[in-house]
Amino acid sequence: MVIQTEGLTFNFGSQTVVKSLSLQVPEGSIYGFLGPNGAGKTTTIKLLLNLLQTQEGSIRIFDLDFQTNRKEILSQVGSLIEQPAIYAHLTGKENLLNRAILLQISENRVDEMLELVHLTQAAHKKAGNYSLGMKQRLGIALALLSDPKLLILDEPTNGLDPNGIIEIRELLKKLVSKHNKTVFISSHLLAEIERMATHVGIINNGELLFQGKIKDLESISQPLVRIEANNTVDAANLLSKNGYHVIDVNDNYLAVTYQSKEKMGQINALLNKNGYTIYSIHKVQKDLEKLFLDITQTPNNERLYTIPTV
């Protein structure tokens, strides 16, 4: 395990922000740390980096104890926490050079990083004048500068445009598959995590609700068929009678469990045949809230699945 925590608990005053968290991040994985805003993701990450003092529980990174191996661990970790930490009065390149001084890294590597995150053109522009997406990319370049074995990224795609998001996603995938890195990435977007993660941990109100491989999550987070029709309630009844599992009905739309493309066609035909007007029919992912409901409704022993040792 690259990251392993046991019973990690953290209180801000009387409020427990992280509750008895036991994370297991295997080597070579992209571990998606999923949870809504305020779930305790950033606090957990700060605990992992020893920016917050551990109150209860233990943290092991690369199978080493943080307290006694701080320098050794941190020399192999690159991180990006919340909004990127960038000196606004320095240029993008100077920001990287400053970090390169601290980590004793050559200027060539700085240029490589600028190239990697497509900031070569803007290298000599003041970082304070960068757009949010450029700052985020510079933050990622800073995290990657020391070529760390473990990357800890807190919502790295925040503020990026779709192209930027895809680029980062591809970059992270490449780092894991070709360079044998491990990536721990937090997000509040299920779809984003599903597209790149190999493992997932879901946190809500400081508690780990689910931990396991991505395919185990997929069995819980089944997509839905969302149908906009003229008479949703009657349409839902009809579909129920025909053996479809209706999840949600309101005045505007109804939703049934997605099974296959063919089934979706059959639903469409069935409703049409019975005189319903369909305005739209499409496949949607469950949102996080619904997913949480599902997870919390499944029996305890099924959901807290720990990853077998890799």
Partner: peptide
């Protein structure tokens, strides 16, 4: 204030430097 403004305390204290 250089660090406060840039929010860089967190990176300074997560460097492999004591």
């Amino acid at each position: 204030s250089v660090e406060h403004k840039a929010d860089t305390w967190k990176t300074l204290f997560s460097l492999p430097i004591a």
